[in-house]
């Protein structure tokens, strides 16, 4: 049983600005639960001009009470109130030549209980061929297209008619109660301890219905957090438009101070309680 959520959207900003905002999206006023972001590998292939980045995020979250009813806190490593932390692994590939960025984020822990994979594709709507054709419509348009993004101290993202399409999906898959990592366990003779197994506290549930319940909880949460993730990106893009990279970095600094100082930005009040963002 797999649950799936998908949406299509559009940012009224040029593709390069959106890719940059993706790298700079934490911290933002809607992401006060993101504790840290580290780049663990990055590779640029000059031939294909693709940039591959792998990052590790640490997020604070509150487990939904529905999950706590199904799986005891002790097993999930959460505090009495359900507070927990989770690592998210994010992979992204920017293909500047073809005007698209593909990203994939997933949880690193408790993948047996619930694996959540979030994918996003940011796509420059116009094909390269169309763009080339447009150049003949006048140099003015071409200059605008190529000069739309600059990040000197006074630089701003200029208003152009460019926008970026976004396709998002979240795939949720619970393996709870299954022996889903047989191979690894075979190598490891003490296996069963870390295996999310069907144990006494939910023996009365059928494996399938338990998995379905957990996937449903994850799906609801994904639906609720998607708008916040999008708002966060918008804040970063807006700062970029207003004051370029300098404004983005200054905004990040303020957001980080607010998080460290325990005074989350006013925006964060809009987050629904128990929410977990992407």
């Amino acid at each position: 049983m797999v649950k799936f959520y998908a949406s299509t959207d559009n940012y009224p900003y040029p593709f390069p600005a959106v890719t940059l905002a993706y790298f700079l999206r934490y911290p933002n006023p809607y992401s006060t639960h993101v504790v840290s972001t580290d780049t663990i590998s990055r590779h640029y292939d000059p031939e294909t001009q693709k940039l591959t980045t792998i990052r590790l995020h640490l997020k604070r979250s509150k487990l939904p009470s529905a999950v706590l009813r199904l799986v005891p806190r002790s097993i999930l490593g959460a505090s009495a109130s359900g507070d927990t932390q989770s690592f998210i692994l994010e992979k992204s590939i920017v293909d500047i030549k073809n005007g698209r960025m593909d990203t994939e984020s997933q949880n690193l822990e408790w993948r047996g209980v619930l694996s959540v994979v979030e994918r996003q594709s940011f796509i420059r709507p116009m094909s390269a061929a169309q763009e080339d054709a447009k150049i003949f419509q006048g140099m003015e348009g071409a200059a605008r297209r190529h000069g739309f993004l600059s990040f000197g101290p006074d630089a701003k993202v200029e208003d152009t008619c460019e926008s970026t399409d976004v396709h998002s999906s979240v795939t949720l898959h619970s393996h709870i109660g299954e022996k889903w990592k047989k191979k690894r366990n075979a190598e490891d003779s003490t296996d069963d301890d870390e295996q999310p197994q069907k144990m006494g506290f939910f023996k009365s549930w059928s494996t399938a219905s338990l998995q379905r319940s957990i996937e449903m909880i994850g799906l609801k949460r994904a639906r609720r957090s998607q708008p916040n993730a999008k708002e966060g990106m918008k804040v970063v893009l807006e700062r970029m438009r207003e004051g370029g990279l300098v404004a983005v970095l200054e905004g990040m600094r303020r957001d980080r101070e607010a998080i460290l100082g325990g005074h989350p930005h006013a925006f964060s009040n809009r987050r629904p309680p128990n929410d977990d963002d992407e």
């Binding site: 790298f23 600059s150 990279l245």
Partner: peptide
């Protein structure tokens, strides 16, 4: 590192990466 990367990724002139003409990170 982050500052260096951002500069490389987004620098207006020569604006290499986003123009698709970067040779190296």
């Amino acid at each position: 590192y982050d500052n260096c990367f951002l500069k490389w990724y987004s620098e207006s002139d020569p604006h290499e990466y986003l123009r698709g003409s970067a040779t190296t990170d």
